[in-house]
Design a protein around this nucleic acid. Sequence first.
DNA 1: CAGTCAAAAATTTGATCATATTCTGCTCAC
DNA 2: GTGAGCAGAATATGATCAAATTTTTGACTG
Lengths: 228, 228
Amino acid sequence: MKLVKNTADQAGVPIRSLPVHEQVYQDLRSRILFGEAAPGQAVTIQGLADALGAGMTPVREAIRRLISDGALLFQGNRRVIVPTLDIAALEQLVFIRKSIESELARRAARHVGPEFVDRLSEIDAALDVAISQGDVPGYLRLNYQFHMALYAQAKASIMAEQADRLWLRFGPSLRVVCGRFGTQNLPDRHKDLLSALAAGDEEGAAVAVTQDVIQGMEQIAAVLEIRE
Amino acid sequence: MKLVKNTADQAGVPIRSLPVHEQVYQDLRSRILFGEAAPGQAVTIQGLADALGAGMTPVREAIRRLISDGALLFQGNRRVIVPTLDIAALEQLVFIRKSIESELARRAARHVGPEFVDRLSEIDAALDVAISQGDVPGYLRLNYQFHMALYAQAKASIMAEQADRLWLRFGPSLRVVCGRFGTQNLPDRHKDLLSALAAGDEEGAAVAVTQDVIQGMEQIAAVLEIRE
DNA sequence: CAGTCAAAAATTTGATCATATTCTGCTCAC
DNA sequence: GTGAGCAGAATATGATCAAATTTTTGACTG
């Protein structure tokens, strides 16, 4: 019942397997990011340890990291849950995302060449396919991939990391949005962004990302208002 | 050699002691925040466990959280160190701090009353004493206290938390600044801020904090440039 | 007699530690 | 200079204890 050994794969391919706590972290992280965790859901250490076939210590470390990321919420007593967004939190997220992500787009526009625009266009094309097919998980993953690929070009690792963490906070709520509205009228200012990038237009890129952020957050706000 | 029991103190005072991993986290956190940890210094799990008289599991959790906070750096292999700031990192910190902390000041100005301005003035007075006496630890603690007290009034917990985390990244370098320049020409736009708050001037408060941030970061930048 | 609320037992879960195992980097011989 | 071995440190497990939640049980009231 042991996981893969840590040195090398049997086929000779030197797959450098990550430590268990890192695997657990990545696993939970993507579940939260892509809406597989429902807001308000309880997260138990022992439950996860059993489910993932890992010990308690690595699971514990992964959960601490995610709490620090804001992806999980520690509820005074010893209970950990997936946080529920409210309007106030969402409004703050909009502000921070606008500040950081528009700057990241601006800086990325400064550095990228045509070959990167092509690569980003490919992701966007796949994204359009996912949308037209109503493929929600595919949409969420590709949209994340699109934005993070862009931000990675900004040569601003701290800001990019910061942005990355922010996405964890609204991941669980995105699922709810898609469950209600489907994939049809999802925000997509990606075309604007791609032309701005191709033209080397920094401000245009910043504006496009800002619009994308605002529209996405408004979708979530709409659902939140219905709930309350 | 055991820490306090978790239930109640022997004197009957119901001191609700925090879990060990939380104590270790707070301890390490303030050490980093107030410059007791040198940039580049190695952090070992067993070393801390021995030094603090705690087990390895709680220490491990505390370290993971601090890594997630950006207060510690995980170096690919299994090494953890106190990160060293470079110019690029500092420039990003300036941008993010300006965005978030100025907005926090703006929002705080919207909510605070005279009694809060008084309280803040008291902290600032103590801060001036610390500066004039060359009390570096006192300065660092009071300056932190001043800013966080303000941000706590903004009714924007996510943004305040975000700002709090950012301070961890330049804490270790502040010590170096004070070691080199002393406490004499440290930035202090606090008087401007206090008058803006008293007048209910949101923009004035935002500008004052922005200036304070810029000046503080310039001090660090000056030291960094000497080093390289 | 039935329904409700409260107290207590049982189960679940979290916190911590001691210990075994694995990995990294270094040293020393060749 | 290179490779084997060694020391130390990190990773990971399972056991143990404590706390909290849930369930069960029982008494009291309408």
